[in-house]
Design a protein around this nucleic acid. Sequence first.
DNA 1: GGACATTAATTTGTATGCAAATGAAATTGG
DNA 2: CCAATTTCATTTGCATACAAATTAATGTCC
Lengths: 160, 160
Amino acid sequence: MDTRSKDKSFPDKTVAPGQAKAGADQYALSEQIGFFLRQANQRHVSIFTSLMAEKLTTTQWAALVKLKDLQPCSQGSLGRETAMDMATIKGVVDRLAKRGLVNTAPDSADARRLVLTLTEEGAAVIERNLSIALEISRETLKPLTAAERMMLMELLQKIC
Amino acid sequence: MDTRSKDKSFPDKTVAPGQAKAGADQYALSEQIGFFLRQANQRHVSIFTSLMAEKLTTTQWAALVKLKDLQPCSQGSLGRETAMDMATIKGVVDRLAKRGLVNTAPDSADARRLVLTLTEEGAAVIERNLSIALEISRETLKPLTAAERMMLMELLQKIC
DNA sequence: GGACATTAATTTGTATGCAAATGAAATTGG
DNA sequence: CCAATTTCATTTGCATACAAATTAATGTCC
């Protein structure tokens, strides 16, 4: 019985083993970590979008939830805590502010800083959607056993 | 010995266990799978950008490599194979075509279809950067042992 | 063959995500 | 105290990513 059924079979053009240069034989897109990461993230965002009732994106939700813990805090530190650069967090905060979920005000002690706080409605939005957010995480990890879920989280943390 | 050392400790406001509604105590952003996935993907893209010499993005590279296997193929099927929707793959292909890496032509058998092929330069770009692409995957997985790498790939595949 | 549904591609609009350049304010070193 | 540096925020430009609407061509069913 051939135990190599999952091997890539023999390449069309044989390459001398010692001097084999990186050939297409050795690179399958669907075996690369980057391709998996992009797809897994896409699936999660898709689940998030379909389950989150109010028109919130993953990053908007992240910013809201983190702001609840950190407030009052500057735009920059909220960005760092939510893994968004300054340009990205600015756009997210602007849209949340326009919807009345976040308050922005200049810092009286440091005129460069923009101080952010949750509005009442912002806090209410978090409260209303917390159980949905938990459901989204559960649904994303549904294909895995409890042990696998823990393992995946640990492995992802190591490569972050 | 307390085996619950990783528990979230006692919440500030005690909630009756039976009727506990989803509270902020139970939801830490930095414990959610979506946050990890977004960050891990960001780190990979960052590694890709810094190591890939020619001005190629992760999705452009994915489209090129997959097209080499599939060519000639329609824009839609290339999109499906690289996990990009029609709007996204169109933008990617347009930019690759403008750079002369991909050829586009209407399908003589089905006038709706756009048939894609690699140009000579497109094939050369793949050849020139294959070893870098492998290096990028290695670098992304560097914090993990060989066993952990395999495990991570399997777990990600399960949730894709 | 012709109404109807389906498929492929395009277009528009919104939202990340990041690099790079700019401006303004605070900090630091001499 | 002043020049150089650093920090915080903004702006611009480019590139995914996806929903929704549109157009054109193909397929299907009666």
